[in-house]
Design a protein around this nucleic acid. Structure first.
Lengths: 211, 211
DNA sequence: CTACAAAGTTGACCGCGGTCGATTATTTTC
DNA sequence: GAAAATAATCGACCGCGGTCAACTTTGTAG
């Protein structure tokens, strides 16, 4: 038996998602009401809550799809031979350019991603682990090539890049960084992180100039 | 003339803030309704909107007070002679320990701080500038002492520390970092940022345990 | 003091996100 | 097949944040 119920459920879920994509893109997340969403999907208002717990959850589901797609894209495009700096810039700029496509949308997404509610913690960690699966191999290779210090934990290295990415996004939302200047800024930050903020020790361990 | 109006306004504002502090601390931000807030402050619901534009604004006002207090505390405690690493850890751990005191509260605050709505942009930038005023002198001194590269823009240096702080907070909210482990994690990240993620070209002249 | 203008206050009202018990559709049991 | 059990759907309903036109209080001009 195919299971009429299961079929219908899948169909309804698709309908909700489709309506969400349409309406969110058309008039934005905030301006779209649940009632309108339900009407567009051809179902009752309450039904939505059988599929998603909150309005934001619908956004999340949508973003997760996007992210999955993005990951797939990155995984296939990942060129493990180019310098790690360039790899990281590419990856995070791909993400960033998704952000710029819908500002309001992305604000909510970033707010929930960076500082998730306790309820979303599990899902959030799973998402992050996916990220690690993507990044770790690249970073390991870079370690082997001698581009990254071997004694630094991969989790920390990931953290550095992600932290600087958060900074960039934050600066973008606050208007301190424009869309056009983002790539340069990110590349600069990444390069500085690689090279270190303190002066590199001179080839000859000469003493300080001024005591 | 004392100005009855001005006096009353100040008084009302104080009353709202006082009610907010009480109720937010007691039952949390989300669980406190504007109506209850108004009742507690002894005024009508609509009056609140003569003083604050949104419910979040009340939170913001409260947080700004906190921040101002924090800044004052930091400015007076700032010891410009200790290593910059330690200075930065102290400053950001002060902030962090404020966060841990009220989780729900802080989530909202961080969400709005890191990814502010366009409406709040101006206020946000002003806040950040305050931060810079606090940090820049310390960083400049560190540059002069040779602890930080002189050719790196102070804005970028600030960015590095702030980005890693964002990361830490994010990891704390997602449960990846516990409250107790935060300081060690942050210090590690900061140290790595200073030293750089790529292998140093020459060994550090300071200490060297294992060849 | 009076009349008028300006500023401040108010609660009924709106639309929203989210809940819930009643209703309908599907599956299981016999 | 019918009947019982379970799952899915629905929209009236709730409390909330936020608005607004009517109203009250304060300041000012003659």
């Amino acid at each position: 038996m195919a299971g009429i119920r299961e079929t219908k459920k899948q169909h309804t879920r698709k309908a909700i998602m489709q309506a969400a994509i349409t309406l969110f893109s058309e008039k934005g997340f905030e301006k779209t009401s649940i009632e309108e969403l339900a009407r567009t999907a051809g179902i009752g208002k309450g039904t939505i809550y059988g599929y998603f717990q909150t309005k934001s959850d619908i956004l999340h589901a949508f973003c997760e799809d996007e992210l999955e797609c993005l990951h797939a894209e990155l995984t296939s495009n990942a060129d493990q031979e180019i310098p790690i700096l360039e790899q990281m810039v590419r990856i995070y700029m791909s993400e960033f350019s998704h952000l710029t496509e819908n500002r309001e949308f992305s604000r909510l997404f970033m707010q929930q991603t960076a500082f998730p509610r306790d309820v979303d913690r599990e899902r959030h960690l799973a998402n992050e682990d996916n990220y690690f699966k993507l990044l770790f191999p690249l970073l390991e290779k870079a370690q082997e090539r001698g581009e990254l210090r071997r004694e630094v934990d991969l989790l920390y290295i990931t953290g550095h890049f992600y932290g600087l990415y958060l900074l960039l996004v934050s600066a973008w939302f606050s208007g301190r960084v424009q869309t056009e200047g983002a790539e340069v800024a990110l590349a600069t930050l990444f390069r500085q992180a690689l090279e270190g903020l303190q002066p590199r020790p001179a080839p000859l361990p000469t003493t300080r100039e001024t005591p």
